[in-house]
Simulated scan of single mutants.
Amino acid sequence: MARRGENIYKRKDGRYEGRYIKFYNSAGKAVYGYLYSKSYTDLKERLKSCKTEKWGASKGMNIPLGEWMNTWLSSLGTTRKPTTQRVYKSHIENHINPALGAIPLKKLNAEQIQNFVNDLNLSAATVKTIFATLKSALISAGGVAPQVWSGVKMPKSEKFITRVLSVEEQKRLENALSGDSDIGIFLCLYTGLRIGELCALRWEDIHLERAVLTVNGTQARTEKGVEIISPKSKSAKREIPLPPFLLEKIKRLPRTGEFVISRFGRPFDIRTYRRHFKHILNKAGLPDIKFHALRHTFATRALEVGMDYKTLSEILGHSTVSITLDLYAHSLNEHKKKQMNKLGGIFQL
């Protein structure tokens, strides 16, 4: 039996075995090292030395943060999706390493990290993701005390009201849609697909006999180029019913390739389709909005016609209903007025 807090065990062969944490891997799990000795006192002293130095023995905590960040990023392997690793790499190269990269791990402190966070002239959400990247790497290093990052204060997030098309604007947009590739805009307006999911949609994902489409992938730009990868989460892989009018539009489309939204037999690149959307907005005389506004518009219209949050959450591919509630608890002023006006009818004689 080990003595409390020492992690030293006596083996059947008479030797003592000691265990210590060498470092934490990219998933945050401890990787252990083992020492052996016939002498309990000798092993205790050697184990104490290893616990003090933690990661990398004599070198680990002396290396610059920037060097460790690059090592950590390279160690991720398949534990993170390519798109996630690209985000990490951008945070490291553009923000973390330029500001903190020269500081040795053992000299890094909470004040330095707090100043780094305060100096980031970015949105609160972006600052939080950059800090999360740094924190994950520091945890994996193993020898950095939690106090270095645990007390750092994040900027307060501003409440963001999503831009949606009014009913009149949506009609103008739909009237401007005429080409075969425009079906993608219809799909997003009436199913809430993300643009990456749209550009990854194959004909085999549309089941005409059941009037549904399945989301099985998303398009992403990796170091290898444009690829179709797994959805961002388990909940993002979903089945969405198709309204009858939309089903009829899909049936009339020519199948010129494997993908529903394609050009020259190849799927539309996300950036190319965004440019196409900008052209359609200009044609319809509408203000410049992000493509993602189509997803917000779908959600708003769905709530306006009485769709419940649970159903909407599943169609949108959110992991929890609370995410849907947080994003779409608001509604358009036009809809608010209609709902409030119903109150007056209760007591009218």
Rank of each mutant, 00 (worst) to 15 (best):
Met61Tyr: 04
Met61Asp: 01
Met61Trp: 02
Met61Ile: 06
Asn62Gln: 15
Asn62Asp: 14
Asn62Phe: 12
Ile63Asp: 02
Ile63Arg: 12
Ile63Val: 14
Pro64Asn: 08
Pro64Glu: 09
Pro64Tyr: 09
Leu65Thr: 00
Leu65Lys: 00
Leu65Ile: 01
Leu65Met: 00
Leu65His: 02
Gly66Trp: 06
Gly66Ser: 09
Gly66Tyr: 02
Gly66Ala: 06
Glu67Leu: 10
Glu67Phe: 07
Trp68Tyr: 14
Trp68Cys: 06
Trp68Glu: 01
Trp68Met: 02
Trp68Asn: 03
Trp68Asp: 04
Met69Ser: 05
Met69Thr: 05
Asn70Val: 03
Asn70Pro: 05
Asn70Leu: 08
Asn70Lys: 13
Asn70Gln: 10
Asn70Met: 05
Thr71Gly: 08
Thr71Val: 00
Thr71Met: 03
Thr71Phe: 03
Thr71Gln: 14
Trp72Asp: 04
Trp72Thr: 15
Trp72Glu: 05
Trp72Leu: 13
Trp72Phe: 15
Leu73Met: 13
Leu73Lys: 09
Leu73Cys: 03
Ser74Trp: 07
Ser74Tyr: 12
Leu76Pro: 04
Leu76Tyr: 09
Gly77Asn: 11
Gly77Gln: 10
Gly77Ile: 15
Gly77Leu: 10
Gly77Phe: 03
Gly77Val: 04
Gly77Met: 08
Gly77Tyr: 09
Thr78Ser: 13
Thr78Lys: 12
Thr78Gly: 13
Thr78Ala: 14
Thr78Ile: 05
Thr78Asn: 11
Thr79Gln: 07
Thr79Ser: 10
Thr79Pro: 10
Thr79His: 12
Thr79Trp: 09
Thr79Lys: 13
Arg80Gln: 13
Arg80Gly: 10
Lys81His: 12
Lys81Met: 09
Lys81Asn: 08
Lys81Arg: 15
Pro82Val: 00
Thr83Arg: 09
Thr83Asn: 11
Thr83Cys: 07
Thr84Cys: 01
Thr84Tyr: 04
Thr84Ser: 14
Thr84Phe: 03
Thr84Glu: 00
Thr84His: 05
Thr84Lys: 08
Thr84Ile: 11
Thr84Arg: 03
Gln85Pro: 00
Gln85Phe: 14
Gln85Asp: 11
Arg86Val: 01
Arg86Ala: 15
Arg86Trp: 03
Arg86Ile: 01
Arg86Thr: 04
Arg86Pro: 08
Arg86Asp: 04
Val87Cys: 06
Val87Glu: 01
Tyr88Pro: 02
Tyr88Thr: 06
Tyr88Glu: 06
Tyr88Met: 05
Lys89Phe: 07
Lys89Pro: 00
Ser90Met: 12
His91Arg: 00
His91Glu: 07
His91Cys: 09
Ile92Tyr: 02
Glu93Ser: 15
Glu93Met: 06
Glu93Gln: 11
Asn94Glu: 12
Asn94Thr: 15
Asn94Ser: 15
His95Cys: 09
His95Met: 07
His95Ser: 07
His95Lys: 04
His95Pro: 03
Ile96Gln: 00
Ile96Leu: 01
Ile96Asn: 00
Ile96Pro: 00
Asn97Gln: 05
Pro98Asp: 11
Pro98Leu: 11
Pro98Lys: 13
Pro98Gln: 10
Pro98Glu: 11
Pro98Asn: 12
Ala99Asp: 04
Ala99Gly: 04
Ala99Thr: 09
Ala99Tyr: 02
Leu100Val: 11
Leu100Ile: 06
Leu100Pro: 02
Leu100His: 04
Leu100Cys: 07
